Amino acid sequence: MKVSSKGEYALRALLVLGQHQGNVMTIQEISEKTLVSINYLEQILLQLKKFDYVKSKRGAKGGYLLQKNSNEINIGEVIRNLEGPLSPMSCASITRYEPCPLEAGCQLKPLWSLVRDTIAYVLERTTLEDLLLNRINLLEGEKIIVNK
């Protein structure tokens, strides 16, 4: 799994909107706080709107605001919606599995599955609220410790 600039910028925009939850922000304000160009940000906000993470308000005092509460926005879901599967290889993907001719005796597939499961475990248990409140999951040894 690789998070592109689109995924990174979408999370930045959600964080900025979350910091101003309930308030409408112009695209210019969001752009200044995220350091993302207005043109690219418009495309990203349209996708976030399509998935019901944000809503827009028209008019002189228009702009964007969160559609959901920050505790309802799951980071794993956001990344999957914008970037696709979390698996590093298609043969280990749950949502977009593609068979491989070497799969039957493949000794790498368990590794890719573990990577997929670990990434999914962390992202699916993280909400926008967790990020806003700096409640990030820490990996320590073989245990995942949740700071909540």
Rank of each mutant, 00 (worst) to 15 (best):
R80E: 13
S56V: 01
I44Q: 04
L48F: 04
V3M: 15
N39C: 03
Q67F: 10
L111I: 15
A60H: 01
K57C: 10
S4Y: 06
L48E: 07
K2H: 14
K68S: 06
R116D: 15
E142Q: 10
I30P: 01
K68C: 05
A10H: 00
I94W: 09
R12V: 01
L108G: 12
V16C: 05
E142R: 08
E42G: 10
I136H: 03
V122A: 14
P85H: 11
G22F: 00
Q28L: 14
V16D: 04
E32D: 12
V146T: 12
Q107G: 15
D52E: 13
L45M: 14
I94V: 15
G76L: 03
E83M: 08
S87W: 04
G18D: 03
K33H: 10
L46N: 13
G22D: 02
Y53H: 09
K49H: 14
E129W: 00
Y97C: 07
E42T: 11
E42D: 13
G141E: 05
S31W: 00
V36R: 02
R58T: 10
T127V: 01
F51C: 05
N137C: 04
G63L: 00
G141Y: 04
E29T: 12
E29N: 12
I79H: 04
I119R: 11
L86N: 05
E142L: 07
S93I: 08
G141A: 06
N69T: 07
R12H: 12
L132I: 03
M1E: 07
R58N: 10
E29K: 09
V78H: 03
L46S: 14
I75E: 04
Y97P: 07
Y53F: 15
I145V: 15
G105H: 09
D52K: 11
T126R: 04
G22V: 00
N81T: 02
L111E: 11
T118G: 15
V122L: 15
F51R: 02
Y97H: 15
P99M: 06
L138E: 06
V24G: 02
R58P: 03
L65E: 12
F51N: 07
Y97G: 05
R58M: 10
I30Q: 05
F51S: 07
L86Y: 06
E142D: 10
L46G: 11
